[in-house]
Amino acid sequence: MKRLFLHPAAVLLAALLAWQIVALVKTTPLFPGPLDVAGALWDDGPRLIREIGHTLRRAVAGFALAALTMIPLGLAMGRIRALGFVGEPLVAMLATLPPPATVPVVMLFAGTGDLAKILVIAYAAAIPLVINAAEAARNLHPMLGLVGRSLGLTRLETLRLIALPSALPMLAVAARMAASAALLVSITSEMLLSTNGIGNYLQREQENFRLDAGLAGIVLISVVGLILNRLIAASERRWLGWHYQSRTAETQA
């Protein structure tokens, strides 16, 4: 009995019920209940899908831009000492600048359209990618390079067959951080530079005191974020299973 009572789903349901009761007592559109939110989700459904499509499109573009430029740069910083020596403190310095703080400047150069937002998203995603790629390349076990040489591999083969796979677990962690940063900043940039997207929707509806619609937008963001996380976790299991299994074996030994 107690176990059922404390089940997360049961607790959530109870919280929703309590919320609904308070909303029914208050009877004001400024305190929407879960049913109002569900209603808004239903009414605005097609529009919400369209808006989150804009958001995701820009998030993916920004993430891809960052991944294509920053992973090679980070790996190079980790392998080439001189580059790392000046590059790393530079990156560390930039990392202290929160992505939204770059919005005003980016806006001056790139306007308020897609390009500006994609640049801010790419900046946000770039920081974990470049830091972790450099770290992964630097921490490559010296033994692995020797193994490559003893097997008679060329430099390029060593890079492809040994260096890249052993850097992958760390890059995966970075990609996960970068992906969630990309989504967060994509939404934030839409709230700051309003044209379209789910962030813009949230801003508009809440300013119009349609709080139920605002909450509906937040619910949608949460669901999309959850799905994104699941997808990343599943692909990590698929491609990096060897890493996690060897780690589990280590802790069990």
Binding site: P8, A9, V11, L12, P100, S180, L183, L184, V185, I187, T188, M191, L192, G199, L202, Q203, Q206, E207, L211, G214, L215, G217, I218, I221, S222, V224, G225, L226, L228, N229
Partner: peptide, 18 residues
């Protein structure tokens, strides 16, 4: 853990107007 999974993807900006 359930609450964290639900709230983690929500950006700070989204809750500010409300």
């Amino acid at each position: 853990d359930t609450v964290a999974a639900i709230l983690q993807p929500v950006p700070p900006a989204a809750v500010v107007p409300m």
